[in-house]
Simulated scan of single mutants.
Amino acid sequence: LGLGLFLSAGSSVLNLAVGLLLLRVGRQHRSITLIADGKHLLTDVWTSVGVLVGIGLVALFGWYVLDPIVALLVGLNILRIGYGLVRESVVGLLDAALPADDVAQVQQVLDRYRDESVTILPPRTRASGRQRFVYLTVRVPGDWTVRAGHDLLDRVEDDVRSALPGTTVFTHLEPIGKVARRR
């Protein structure tokens, strides 16, 4: 019993370290898989802690009913974490708007370009898995050259990608005011 508890505690400490590392790296890389693996390992840690606590309480108080109560609490925790993992995985597979923090970073970039002559409509955003997408409509004076408009769009796209690395940015250029059309 002593060696078994010692090995269980040692493996739990190792699982704790690896689980926390997986969570950190998963969040850095926005990887649902790494985050799920990290949470899975942390669930194993809680299970081992529950076993140790259950055995300890029974040894300390002699009440055998404490062990199944602790096991029930550990089981409920596993269900809670499992539900969260399934929910996050399903949401990760579907398209959704970017989180408010990401949209705020995009807005900060766009605010640097807005002036009397340039109008940028509110960005449309979406996330699909770990992919992020930003759609922008930029309005410039109708008498700007195509080169000037596209140079502006290139700078805006580069700055948004710098603020949110790995983001795909789509821009659309529109003229402000009436412009004579040529065919």
Rank of each mutant, 00 (worst) to 15 (best):
V13E: 08
L14G: 09
L16G: 13
L16V: 08
L21C: 14
L22A: 15
R24F: 06
R24T: 10
V25E: 14
V25M: 12
R27D: 12
Q28R: 15
I32P: 14
I32C: 11
T33S: 15
D37K: 00
T43A: 12
V45R: 05
T47H: 06
S48K: 01
V49D: 03
L52H: 09
A59W: 07
L60M: 11
F61T: 15
V65Q: 12
P68D: 04
V70G: 09
V74C: 09
L76P: 07
L76R: 09
N77T: 10
I78A: 15
I78G: 11
G84M: 07
E88S: 13
V91K: 12
L93K: 04
P99R: 00
A104Q: 10
Q107F: 00
Q108F: 00
R112H: 08
Y113D: 04
D115A: 02
S117V: 07
P123Q: 01
R130A: 12
R130S: 15
Q131A: 14
V134I: 01
V134R: 08
Y135D: 15
R139Q: 14
D143Y: 02
V146K: 05
V146Y: 05
R147Q: 14
A148P: 11
H150M: 01
D151W: 02
V156T: 03
V156S: 04
E157V: 00
D158T: 11
V160K: 04
S162P: 02
L164F: 03
G166W: 02
G166T: 03
T168I: 06
V169N: 05
E174G: 00
E174L: 04
G177P: 07
K178T: 13
R182M: 08
R183H: 14
